[in-house]
Design a protein around this nucleic acid. Structure first.
Lengths: 157, 157
DNA sequence: TCAATATAGACAACAAGGTTGTCGAATGCA
DNA sequence: TGCATTCGACAACCTTGTTGTCTATATTGA
């Protein structure tokens, strides 16, 4: 059963998918409707310091206009507020609300639960090894939060 | 460096991404412009037996209309032809052309090359182990070709 | 047998989430 | 001071999905 490169790609996608699916559907069930990974990524980026639309766009590899649309949704749903920047009248400073922090924490918890389930399935050592190898292969690419542009959209290259 | 569930998800996405990015950009460089994973998946599904638009839609977890649009593109580019079905006047039978077969083979080859590179990075044993564990965790979900609906679109849950 | 039902594919309208281009206002630098 | 840059907003558009509706053809079951 020598696997092909295509199979490998599908396995990786399947893994990501199963984790994210679980998270998103559980979040929806928990009252956070229509909260998609893109939103999660955006919140993460904002917490990480992307405090303006242009900034968020840069960090998530997306146009500032697209970022602004996402922000509008997050604001509308109360996950983020924007206040005028006292130091730069052009900017609007973004802040994650406590509701936003809640949904992020909830998402983390669900992902953590999935990871624990995986740990039980193949054992902590194997999972740790899998993560370590993946980290080795993927390297920094996984850490960059430019995923949303990539996730939401179809592959642009 | 205890990894979180979120990190794990990003690692998996990053892995898939790096494989697919390489494939799509190399295909583009090789003259197959705008050939996206969705198309690859559709071709695979057609080869696997999805010989009508409705059928393809079902197999790829997408509406028949969406499938029809994808098919239209594939036909336009010469990767697929459609002929009236002699047994059912409603249907149009899909067939992958030799050009379609070519692009698939090329894609496979590129993915294979990426996989080999990974093999060199972490060793054949480790990669095989990684694949085996992933297969264990993801199970059938990876084999279902319903990925395109999931890939192309933004995460719907 | 034949009427009811289901399916194929086409067409239209629309939604989501991107893109580029443009603009006025505010900032920063030479 | 004045010019280039950046911010956010707005508009138009593209892609890839979605539903809904329609006609033609099959299939099924009373």
């Amino acid at each position: 059963m020598s696997r092909s490169g295509a199979d490998l790609a599908l396995l990786l996608l399947g893994g990501y998918r199963s984790l994210v699916d679980a998270a998103t559907s559980e979040l929806a069930a928990g009252g956070y409707e229509d909260f998609k990974p893109v939103h999660e990524f955006a919140l993460r980026a904002i917490v990480a310091g992307a405090d303006s639309a242009s900034d968020l766009g840069r960090r998530t590899s997306v146009s500032k206009q697209a970022a602004a649309k996402t922000i509008a949704i997050l604001i509308e749903r109360g996950y983020v507020v924007s206040k005028p920047d006292p130091d730069d009248a052009r900017r609007k400073r973004l802040e994650v609300t406590s509701l936003g922090a809640q949904v992020m924490a909830r998402g983390e918890a669900i992902l953590e639960k999935s990871r624990n389930k995986w740990e039980q399935q193949i054992g902590p050592t194997e999972l740790a090894n899998l993560e370590a190898r993946l980290a080795e292969l993927v390297g920094d690419a996984a850490i960059r939060v430019d995923a949303p542009g990539w996730v939401a959209q179809d592959p642009r290259y």
